[in-house]
Amino acid sequence: LNSRGVWLTYIILVFVLHFILLSIPTITTPVAWTLTTTIHNVCSFYLFHLIKGAPWETSDQGLARRFTFWEQIDNGVQWTGTRKFLQIVPIVLFFIASFYTKYDKTHFMINMVTMLLAVIPKFPIFFGVR
């Protein structure tokens, strides 16, 4: 995640997701943004906070098996650049979605709930909490 180009790719993937949703004729722009935010946050929660271990055989004698992806980033060091970046993206998406849905109450609640789902587990206080 620290490698060159990974953060840019992450942003590109989010916009590709939005583009795919937007290209479906029946989906309006507000719905597209809310769907983008929701899908991103749910995938982020699943990928970073549910899956444990690594998808390849590590040479650490199984040490990584007990940690989620998020806890393994930068070997557990908190507030690194990558962590801040991954923490900020759901929040920015929330603001964009709120703006495009003209702060409609229903959309706002949906976006808020999923944003909290993606942001709260990333707080240092939840490190290792199951």
Partner: peptide, 19 residues
């Protein structure tokens, strides 16, 4: 020499697609 950014992006997108 640094990895060209576009090559890095296409590489990570490739891994994302394979995943």
């Amino acid at each position: 020499e640094e990895t060209p950014t576009w090559a890095a992006v296409i590489t990570v997108l490739g891994y994302a697609l394979l995943t």
